[in-house]
């Protein structure tokens, strides 16, 4: 009966290649904005902790309950350590804050992709990606990170959501056991090219001597962009 139950669950869980790609994009969204060894330390510990959690989950699914639980607990502790490192390590108060949403976002993203609770996958993936984006915005506010860094990290957080959602969608329609790699790689390629194009266009616009433009001018530009988007939607 165990094989029966597990195969039932295997059917609607997010696919593995997409989940891996999404996590990769998420880590990139955090990593691109990092400055200083203390923050790197925190990110590495967080990633190791999350990997242990995922490994524990897989072991649990395969019937090794004890090993799985131990690994997951160790992973959870490491994630907490990473959060503590992120808060305590950097000297500047501003830097202490900027890593928190990103690290939390990675944990929530993983929780959605495992998934910790079925039918919550989309909610968790969206929340995780939103936290990643909040992390990017925080970096922009507290530290004034460079435009290219901010944009790349922003694109990476959108990619994390896109690939995570794709993985959830494929999991629902064809299941975790089906071969999905090709479809997911092509989709990821498309989104990545779109991201690169966005980056290039935005930086190109920025290079047209935007320095001289006032904030109000920027805001108007943004409003114009929104108007364009909504016009396209009609």
């Amino acid at each position: 009966m165990t094989s029966l139950a597990s195969s039932r669950e295997l059917l609607d869980r997010p696919t593995v290649p997409g989940a891996l790609l999404a996590m990769l994009a998420g880590v990139a969204a955090v990593g691109i904005l990092i400055e200083g060894a203390g923050q790197w330390q925190a990110l590495v510990v967080d990633v190791v902790g999350l990997a242990l959690c995922a490994g524990g989950y897989v072991a649990w699914r395969r019937g090794q309950q004890v090993a799985g639980a131990l690994s997951a607990i160790a992973g959870g502790v490491l994630v907490l350590v990473a959060l503590a490192l992120a808060v305590s390590q950097p000297e500047a108060m501003t830097e202490r804050l900027e890593l928190l949403p990103g690290l939390l976002g990675l944990a929530v993203l993983l929780a959605g992709l495992l998934p910790v609770r079925s039918s919550w996958e989309r909610r968790l993936v969206s929340t995780g990606a939103a936290l990643l984006f909040v992390g990017v915005v925080t970096s922009g506010v507290v530290r004034g990170a460079s435009e290219i860094q901010l944009l790349a990290a922003g694109v990476a957080s959108v990619l994390a959501w896109d690939l995570g959602e794709q993985s959830v969608s494929l999991g629902g329609q064809v299941g975790r056991r089906a071969r999905t790699r090709r479809a997911e790689l092509v989709h990821a390629g498309g989104s990545l090219v779109a991201g690169a194009a966005i980056l290039a266009v935005t930086l190109g616009v920025a290079a047209l001597d935007v320095q001289g433009l006032s904030l109000a001018g920027f805001a108007v530009l943004l409003v114009a962009a929104f108007a364009l988007v909504f016009a396209l939607r009609q």
Partner: peptide, 24 residues
């Protein structure tokens, strides 16, 4: 979100970040 925060915090770079969402 990025646009609003950028306006409040007066950071032009965040307004640029808003273009990521528009682009997608």
């Amino acid at each position: 979100f990025a646009g609003a925060v950028g306006l409040l915090a007066q950071r032009p770079s965040l307004l640029l970040l808003a273009s990521a969402g528009v682009g997608y």
